[in-house]
């Protein structure tokens, strides 16, 4: 039974992830006063890459990188329940809590670093260095905010945190939400924090040497991972969801906010991004934590 449940979760995340990615490209196009591609364009791209031949060989560790990223994304997805009530779409959430998810969030990038490091492309190594540097700065405010939320609701269980909110955590503790949101924009790979894969600086960074099926795998994992992270944010700050409609609505609103930031801001340099993330959102998160525990 649980296998069917997990498979369904995967299918839903895959479909919704690619739908959101298509919408992302279309909405960004509208921001730039363009017509934009159709909504299923990202899906077409990924399927096309599955049909391409491989022409490169960098050893097995290189090709393990996307696989580790994919498994990291899928594991993260499985430990996040989609709904706060009911038995379906719960995944493995009864076996793990928010701590496990925080660990799994960094599994993908680290696996990718191992893979790309053996590739020999200087741009891949540069992208990975940028990505890991940013990761350390990005996680600090996010962890402070999440740990504060966990201690305030007295539980590390995602479903409990989501269902115990009488008013949404986003409105009850706005400072924590803002801090988490800023680093969440970075986690989604949006401007101004999209330093690792900057196309004109490091030529798409970690993905620069991947082609064909492995690139398709990377695209699929980013679609799934995006949806998983959106659901996590909805559970932590927006009161979770009890049905598909509510879940899609809340994740979509969150997604729109994130890509609006991405569409209107330029890109930081790496030191600027680290500086900003370590100063502004971290300060906001600490102040939010103090205010929340005071009252």
């Amino acid at each position: 039974m649980i296998v069917v449940d997990l498979l369904l979760m995967l299918v839903v995340a895959y479909a919704v992830g690619f739908l959101y990615y298509g919408l992302y490209r279309n909405i960004t196009a509208r921001f730039q006063r363009r017509f934009g591609p159709p909504v299923w364009q990202s899906f077409i791209d990924s399927i096309k890459f599955f049909f391409k031949e491989e022409s490169t060989s960098h050893g097995w560790m290189f090709y393990l990188g996307p696989v580790i990223m994919m498994s990291g994304a899928i594991m993260t997805l499985f430990f996040i329940p989609f709904f706060t009530v009911g038995d379906t779409f719960q995944g493995l959430s009864q076996y793990g809590n928010a701590f496990v998810i925080l660990y799994l969030l960094v599994l993908g990038p680290l696996g990718n670093a191992l893979g790309v490091g053996t590739g020999g492309s200087p741009f891949g190594a540069m992208g990975i260095t940028r990505g890991l540097t940013r990761l350390f700065a990005m996680e600090l405010p996010f962890y402070i905010a999440v740990i504060a939320i966990m201690s305030l609701s007295g539980s590390a269980d995602i479903a409990t945190i989501a269902s115990e909110q009488t008013t949404f955590n986003a409105f009850a503790y706005p400072l924590l939400f803002i801090a988490a949101m800023i680093s969440f924009i970075g986690m989604m790979g949006q401007s101004p924090f999209d330093v690792p894969g900057a196309p004109v600086e490091v030529y798409s960074g970690p993905a620069s040497e991947f082609s064909g099926k492995f690139l398709a795998l990377l695209m699929s994992q980013s679609a799934i991972f995006t949806f998983a992270k959106l659901v996590l944010m909805v559970h932590l700050f927006l009161g979770g969801a009890s049905g598909f409609l509510e879940l899609l609505l809340k994740t979509f609103i969150l997604f729109i906010v994130v890509i609006a930031f991405g569409a209107i801001y330029g890109r930081f340099k790496t030191p600027q991004a680290v500086d900003f993330l370590l100063k502004v959102p971290t300060t906001i998160a600490v102040v939010g934590l103090i205010l929340a525990t005071w009252s």
Binding site: R33, R34, G36, P37, Q41, P199
Partner: peptide, 18 residues
């Protein structure tokens, strides 16, 4: 923006591998 090839599914790729 002016001619927008992306509406036909044509977009840029950064490296020859992609």
């Amino acid at each position: 923006s002016r001619y927008d090839a992306e509406r036909l599914g044509i977009r840029g790729a950064a490296t020859p591998r992609q």
